[in-house]
Write a protein that binds this DNA or RNA. Sequence first.
DNA 1: TCTGGGGTCCTAGGACCC
DNA 2: TCTGGGGTCCTAGGACCC
Length: 431
Amino acid sequence: MYALVDGNNFYVSCERNFRPSLKTRPVVVLSNNDGCAISRSNEAKAIGIRMGAPWFECRQLAEEHGAVALSANFTLYGDMSNRMMGIAAGMGPGQEIYSIDESFIDLVGVRGDLVKRGQDVRERILQWIGIPTGIGIGPTKTLAKLANHVAKSADRKPGSYPKEFARVCNLAALPAADLDSVLEATNVDEVWGIGRRIAKQMNDEGVMNVRQLVQIDPATIRRRWSVVLERTVRELQGQQCISLEHEPPPKQEIAYTRSFGQPVRSLFELTQAVTEFASGAAAKLRLQNGKAGQINVFIHTSPFREGPQYSRNATVPLRRPTSDTLLLVRAAITALQAIYKPGFNFIKAGVMLLDLQDGSVEQHELALEDEPETRSALMGTLDRLNDRFGRGTVLMASAGLEGKERSWAMRQNLLTPQYTTRWDELPVARA
DNA sequence: TCTGGGGTCCTAGGACCC
DNA sequence: TCTGGGGTCCTAGGACCC
């Protein structure tokens, strides 16, 4: 038995916590460069702002309704997430943190009324962290996800499901007939693992709701679609196919990619960006104590804009697997120089670390180019300084200096303070 | 003027081997 | 006119998730 605990409109809820005046207004949180709406309050959804909608397209509509837009403050959301996850973990003996705002809880061996238990956890998160959540409970992860969808819809959209399912919903406790009517009221595109494409294909074949879906033989699903979807259907039928991951497995690749605040043309500017991205990726890599065997760099123009398009990437093998910022930046710049072509308006670049391996394995060579121990001490110091005094405190000179140059830096014009992670930005309470 | 970022898994097809 | 069988590895692309 599993529960899925999921924060409602998570980024918006984090922001509202520190600015209660936002609680009655439509609020949207925007992606990097203030490009798209990536989190919306119920009020913002109600006026028709779609997930992922470009802000320049829906801005007027939003402002006519008194909406407030904010730049994404991922430092804040990450910290709020950690606090929420700590409380959610109390619901059962195991937890898998599935994304920034949701975690699966293993309920094996938990006795008593699970709905009551869920309601208690929900209340605690709301009171201590200020984040409203929905909790779904079911015999498989896919059914727990579905129950979570029911819990949220019943709470927000009157008439979608019976009201007693609102906020906390346990599908496992339902008599078969009631479960059937829930499944019948749920479109296949709400199922975890069924996206737009497959939902469309199913609809074309007359499979509209989940009750119809669970009546299909898994072998048929496999033949018509894939083993992935077969697992999904089996899970909906109550058979556990996807187990809980207590520990996140080490990443197989690490990416650091960004759109620019404005298009750039020169190799000089791209070198700055690629330096910064490679440094950032290297820091993430050291955080999981890994080493990369290869590094990939890409640059491309904007498919949304007029003008000649250009998109290329290059992969450079490292002589030895490494997590050293200096070596990775050097390799990234080599790759960039190989793919750069003048005369284009570049809008995005990225660095990907590939072929990742455990950092405790050291491959030596006869003539060492550097002193590995000195270097890893240097990287440790670099990470500690940037952690303590803020990202970018110590950086590679080719990344360029704050304010000057760096024309590509992203726009975040509507950024809120880091209320919970910086002493000088703590909210102040007045009597 | 203006369109995010970071992942995973699976499959098909090509290259290559004996 | 006709061209085997069995296998591995790699990559690109497509699907999905948040």
